[in-house]
Amino acid sequence: MKGLFKISPGYEDVMPQEYLDLVNNGPYGKNYGVDDLGTFKELLEEHPLCAGCGLALSMRLVLASLPAPEDTIMVGSTGCSSLAFTQVAVHNIHSLFGNQNAVATGLKRALKIRFPDKVKDVVVMAGDGATVDIGLDMVMHSWFRREKITTIMLDNEAYANTGGQESGMSQQNAVLNMAPTGKKFPKIALPEVAKASGCAYVGVVSPAQPKRLGDMVRKAILIAREVGPTYLQLYSPCPTNYKFKSRETMQKIKERMESGMFEVMEYITPEAEAFLAEMKEGDKQ
């Protein structure tokens, strides 16, 4: 393991417990996944997001599913998730609201120059407002340019951090701040846009299916490493702004699924599929 995860001799006994745990029982180089949650020290430390926050749960699952956390650099954006990102034990960038895919583009290309023979996964994880509204041009252009980065949207169907305003991902007719008479147009079909824009893999899932979510995160990152851009949309309801009880988050997702308004979806290009098959073959040998 790299020296960055080792404590210098003589300082072990002054290091706070959380760092000792990270060193002794962290996920770096371990190939852990969602199934291993509870058995290792997670990357995400205590954070200030609300109780029952769907987005916080999605973040936790994504972080537990990174195929190579020791070589993953993440890019976030302003929003609720940025408050938790300060507590994440992989290098991550908060730059401005909406420029995450542009930042990730520069980051990925620079890392390629500095470490041409090393895996350096660049993973963007940002809110729906950041991804589909203010940052949409940069999100799409990173796809058009076939940047080898993974884009993950934490879709809580609102601008949560600024107090629950309508976003492009809100449902039609939803009454929210800045949509006092209800939203006038449907939820933006970003997964369709992603397919048409050159993504090699597109997925929609929620933390109600943690294992599936973990699998899809892995695929999205591995495909981005070798084949091309990937997009993952994680439906992550916000109890605070949609005014339901914090323990009802999973219930909300299930209701959506039962009513047919939310479906898990996966799209993969033949090239990406072949790559995954090849990897599996390699793993067996």
Binding site: K2, K6, I7, G10
Partner: peptide, 17 residues
């Protein structure tokens, strides 16, 4: 100095200790 991330760090950390 707390993290032994590159050559020379340990020596410096030990000296500081």
């Amino acid at each position: 100095v707390l993290w032994a991330w590159k050559d020379g760090v340990i020596e410096k950390a030990v000296a500081a200790k």
